[in-house]
Simulated assay, not measured.
Amino acid sequence: MEIAENAALVVVDVQKGFEEEGFWGARNNPGADDNIASLIDAWQETGRPVVFVRHDSRKPQSPLRPGYAGNGFKEYVERRRGKGVGAELLVTKSVNSAFYGEPDLDAWLKGAGVAQFVVVGIQTNMCVETTARMGGNLGYEVIVPLDATHTFDLEGPFGWRRSAQELAEATAVSLHGGGFAKVVTTRELVDRP
């Protein structure tokens, strides 16, 4: 697997509000934050572009709503913003896909000649998956290090309930098997010569 010299890292919704377990429920992958941090560090050290995406929820009770402390990035992300030598962008959105945010992510990537991006963050089966799918549809080569994402247990129709781990695995199968993205591990991206 080749990582382009200008491959972007898209860090999706790594916000304090996702720490509110009472709102979201049980999560998977407790190592996700360490993996996200190591990928940001690796991208910044190599001068590659990093995109930080923040979800500004329109729901008044959401821990991600603007004006609420949970809307802010987790501390380890905030400490890294502005520290790289490569290009950096902040995208804000109120829907699942980072491609429907402000400023226009697709235009920014294309303007920089970026054809490949890595997407990490929260939630695996929501904003990470939607951003990866749209990226694939738009013609980008998308890479998802699954262990640099996490999600929460969820109930759907017919009383069906899936654990966070089951949802993450289903996302990986859909993205990788469906040709939207290549699903890898953080180590495959960080431990490169």
Rank of each mutant, 00 (worst) to 15 (best):
Q15N: 01
Q15D: 02
K16R: 14
E20P: 00
E20L: 05
E21S: 14
G22W: 00
G22Q: 00
F23W: 10
F23I: 09
W24F: 12
W24A: 05
G25I: 02
A26N: 05
R27I: 00
N28T: 00
N28R: 05
N28K: 08
N29L: 08
P30L: 08
P30T: 02
P30Q: 09
D33F: 10
I36N: 05
I36E: 14
I36D: 08
I36K: 13
S38D: 11
S38E: 14
I40P: 00
I40W: 01
D41I: 10
A42W: 07
Q44M: 09
T46A: 15
G47E: 10
G47N: 04
R48L: 13
R48A: 10
R48M: 07
P49R: 09
P49N: 07
P49I: 08
F52V: 12
F52S: 06
V53K: 00
R54M: 13
H55M: 02
S57G: 03
P60V: 11
Q61F: 14
Q61C: 04
Q61A: 11
Q61M: 11
Q61K: 15
S62W: 11
S62Q: 10
P63S: 09
P63M: 09
P63N: 13
R65F: 06
R65M: 15
Y68R: 08
A69K: 05
A69T: 08
N71R: 14
N71Y: 08
K74R: 15
K74W: 04
E75C: 03
Y76N: 06
V77N: 02
E78M: 10
E78R: 13
R79A: 06
R80H: 07
R80L: 12
R80M: 05
K83R: 15
V85G: 15
V85P: 02
A87V: 08
E88M: 05
E88L: 01
E88Y: 02
L89A: 01
L89T: 02
L90I: 11
L90E: 13
V91Y: 03
K93W: 06
K93T: 03
K93D: 02
S94C: 04
S94V: 07
V95K: 09
V95D: 03
